Computed example of a mutant assay.
Amino acid sequence: MELLASRKKHPQNTIVNIGKVHFGDGNLTAIAGPCTIESKEQLFAIAEAVKASGADLLRGGAYKPRTSPYTFRGLGPKGLEYLLEAGQKTGLPVVSEIMEIADIPLFKDVDLIQVGAKNMQNYPLLEALGKLDKPVLLKRGSGNTIEELLYSAEYILSNGNPNVILCERGIRTFEPMTRNTFDINAIPLLKELSHLPVVADPSHGTGISSIVTPVTHAAIASGCDGIMVEVHNDPACALCDGQQAVDLNGFAQLMLGAREYEKIRCIYNNPL
């Protein structure tokens, strides 16, 4: 049986449309914002800055599946409220992570629902999201294979929702110097195997803010449809994952390079 996610089943690229933003149409789409929403003031400051630097969507975590139960796990519904306000103010579509089926009604106005790495194989949640008319960003688990990622996408697709975006965000290996090992191979391979758009998350993929920019540019060169970057106005004081967040100026510089790499990629893929 050929998978619904397979390029053999669906030779043409799937384009996921979120308002005026498109994933999979050949252009690079940028998602940016804080790992976790800490306050309305923090979020609004970051939202205005990432929009000015060229972000297409605003991300912000209201619910965070933390390894330790004693760390900050988000503001919950209040965080979503702030995110929607920031989206309306900036005009940016918003992205946030869902953790359980019961919270689906709270996400009715979120433009792109993210399934985090730790929920990639939460099959009841995937099936429930498959019944929605809402795009889903599906992150690869740190211990999961590419095949398992595609089968997880199948749970959403087979329940009627064709708007799935895959996300490579690093895998766990024997290397201890980075948070994860960013699997650059996965991007062109997923593009070959599947018609679904592919987004790169170099923040979780590396865990080190100083190398987020070069890994972002490498992901663009490898053919990703979008990037997802964690941005904070004061990374040293962030309540979650500050070590992998770029600051506002760093994101502006990252985006300047990203658009240049996008141009080069376009020329390479469309020679005269």
Rank of each mutant, 00 (worst) to 15 (best):
E230L: 01
E230Q: 06
V231C: 10
H232F: 03
N233D: 14
N233H: 10
N233V: 08
N233L: 12
D234A: 03
D234I: 02
A236M: 04
C237G: 04
L239C: 07
D241M: 05
D241Y: 04
G242I: 02
Q243I: 03
Q243G: 08
Q244P: 04
Q244I: 00
A245C: 05
A245S: 13
A245Q: 03
V246H: 00
D247W: 05
D247A: 08
D247E: 11
L248T: 13
L248P: 15
N249H: 10
F251G: 11
A252Y: 09
A252P: 08
M255A: 07
L256T: 15
L256Y: 14
G257K: 09
G257N: 14
G257P: 10
G257F: 08
A258Q: 09
R259A: 12
R259Q: 11
Y261H: 06
E262P: 06
E262T: 12
K263R: 12
K263E: 09
I264G: 11
I264D: 13
I264A: 14
R265I: 05
R265S: 11
C266V: 13
C266I: 15
I267P: 00
Y268A: 10
Y268V: 08
N269W: 00
N269Y: 00
N269C: 00
N270Y: 05
N270D: 05
P271H: 05
L272N: 09
